[in-house]
């Protein structure tokens, strides 16, 4: 019992952490944005090196202080007025832009104190990066559930145990659920990042094919009446479908341009997923979330199996 409560907390806390933890850039990212778009402001966190002084008229008024970012780079920060709680503050989380002319950071507004935890600012993703904690585990679960379903299918073909077939079908059902959720979250992310809900990039195409395979699997199951035959045919179909996967991996990058990180034409394989490229904090939350989803999946599997056993026992006592 206790682990179920723990699981709820695990996923809930990780979801909250994933959403609430602020995104904060460093001086490097602020300077990079300044080159692309001068007016663009981004979140930034820094610790105070020198509490500074009131700025003169020529300097634009307000307050000037010196701060240091997470990579120990220092810069002058210009506030429109003296920031609140300056005497006690260790640092600030601000929304700011880099002023190339005056070589200083223009702070637009102060969001809060220096945060203990934050996710790095990824150019092009910014706040939108947070959906990764939901989208990526769901996409992985889609694949894991399919593999588990196929595994039980193969076991059914070898041992002819109807329970294996039921496990296979339940896993496929959960896989379909994760597939729909993963596609929806991914589609939303794509809309706000790449401009349209669907772009036919290789990974979108693969999840679409997986959706079709799941759909075909259940269409086949509902079209066969004898349960033993249903079990055999659906197991055979999932194996055949799995046999085509390597071809997709080979053919798709040739045909369509990749948008996802890690695509064949993406030389640096993106800021998020490449090993070492992803922020340690983000990676911990992501993997912890994945663990939570796997446990949730296992739990749902066992619930379904118990329901199934109860139904069987009822059918037996009824007849």
């Amino acid at each position: 019992m206790w682990w179920k409560i723990l699981l709820f907390f695990w996923i809930a806390v990780l979801s909250v952490v994933g959403i609430v933890t602020p995104i904060a850039g460093d001086l490097g990212s602020v300077a990079m944005f300044a080159q692309m778009d001068k007016a663009k402001t981004v979140p930034l966190k820094f610790t105070i090196v020198d509490r500074g002084r009131a700025a003169t008229e020529e300097e634009g008024g307000g307050w000037l202080l010196r701060g240091r970012d997470a990579h120990d780079r220092e810069a002058d920060f210009h506030f429109t007025s003296r920031p609140d709680g300056l005497d006690n503050a260790e640092g600030y989380l601000v929304v700011a832009r880099y002023d190339n002319d005056n070589h200083r950071v223009e702070v637009e507004r102060v969001t809060g104190e220096y945060p203990a935890f934050s996710f790095p600012l990824i150019p092009g993703l910014e706040e939108r990066a947070k959906i990764i904690f939901f989208h990526v585990p769901m996409a992985w679960m889609t694949v894991i559930a399919f593999l588990v379903s196929m595994w039980y299918g193969i076991r059914y073909l070898r041992k002819k145990d109807m329970d294996d077939d039921y496990r296979s079908a339940v896993s496929a059902g959960l896989g379909l659920l994760f597939c729909i959720l993963g596609t929806t979250t991914g589609s939303l992310w794509a809309k706000f990042n790449w401009g349209s809900f669907w772009n036919w990039d290789p990974r979108e195409t693969s999840i679409f094919v997986l959706l079709l395979v799941y759909g075909a699997y259940f269409a086949l199951r509902s079209a066969v009446e004898i349960e033993e035959k249903k079990a055999t045919l659906s197991a055979v179909y999932s194996i055949i479908a799995a046999a085509t996967v390597p071809f997709f991996i080979f053919i798709m990058p040739r045909i369509m341009p990749g948008l996802h990180p890690g695509s064949a034409d993406d030389s640096n394989s993106g800021p998020v997923m490449s090993s070492g490229g992803m922020d340690a904090m983000m990676r911990i939350v992501l993997y912890a979330m994945l663990v939570g989803y796997i446990v949730l999946y296992g739990w749902l599997m066992s619930i379904q199996m118990r329901i199934h056993r109860i139904k069987l026992r009822r059918a037996e006592t009824a007849s």
């Binding site: 395979v213 086949l220 066969v224 045919l233 055979v236 179909y237 055949i240 479908a241 080979f250």
Partner: peptide, 30 residues
């Protein structure tokens, strides 16, 4: 093989393209 599978099912006609398309897709693309 897909024809052999759907021959055992009830809705043979509609099921055939449904089951075939995901399997045929890499072939079609190439």
């Amino acid at each position: 093989i897909i024809a052999a599978i759907i021959a055992k099912a009830n809705t043979k006609g509609t099921l055939f393209p449904v089951l075939s398309f995901p399997v045929l897709l890499p072939l079609l693309m190439a």
